[in-house]
Amino acid sequence: MATYQSRFPELGFYVKDELRKFTAGSYVTESDAEIAVLDALTDAARVEESIDEVVLDEITDEQPEESADKPAAPKAPAPRKSSAK
């Protein structure tokens, strides 16, 4: 899988007479034909790691820790007193 980033959010390019577009400046493909065209584009750069792999790595690296110091529950507001008018 190859991931590419563009400096334009919706950069378009043609592969075998079919229009392909970046979405939000990102394009992911496994096609050799698309990779060849994208490597030739000057407005797109290949990203070393795909976004899914980075997110997966962050999830597995951050294990929730059990902490003994739990934050105290917020205090309830003081009851309102009516004015003596």
Rank of each mutant, 00 (worst) to 15 (best):
residue 20 R to P: 02
residue 30 E to L: 06
residue 15 V to A: 02
residue 82 S to L: 15
residue 38 L to F: 01
residue 69 D to V: 14
residue 53 E to S: 14
residue 34 E to C: 02
residue 53 E to C: 06
residue 19 L to A: 12
residue 56 L to R: 15
residue 3 T to Y: 03
residue 38 L to E: 01
residue 16 K to M: 06
residue 35 I to P: 01
residue 76 A to F: 09
residue 20 R to C: 11
residue 35 I to K: 06
residue 46 R to V: 00
residue 25 G to E: 01
residue 50 S to Y: 04
residue 60 T to V: 13
residue 75 K to Y: 02
residue 43 D to V: 04
residue 83 S to K: 13
residue 47 V to G: 01
residue 57 D to C: 03
residue 59 I to Q: 06
residue 36 A to T: 06
residue 77 P to L: 11
residue 77 P to S: 10
residue 38 L to S: 04
residue 43 D to L: 12
residue 46 R to N: 04
residue 42 T to V: 10
residue 82 S to K: 14
residue 1 M to R: 10
residue 33 A to P: 01
residue 25 G to A: 03
residue 71 P to H: 06
residue 82 S to D: 07
residue 64 P to Y: 14
residue 43 D to F: 00
residue 61 D to S: 13
residue 83 S to W: 01
residue 8 F to R: 12
residue 74 P to Y: 00
residue 14 Y to Q: 09
residue 37 V to S: 02
residue 12 G to M: 01
residue 8 F to E: 09
residue 30 E to N: 11
residue 41 L to N: 03
residue 30 E to T: 13
residue 82 S to M: 14
residue 65 E to M: 10
residue 68 A to M: 12
residue 18 E to K: 02
residue 85 K to N: 11
residue 44 A to Y: 02
residue 11 L to F: 09
residue 2 A to S: 11
residue 76 A to H: 04
residue 71 P to M: 04
residue 1 M to C: 11
residue 44 A to H: 02
residue 29 T to P: 02
residue 30 E to Y: 06
residue 45 A to V: 14
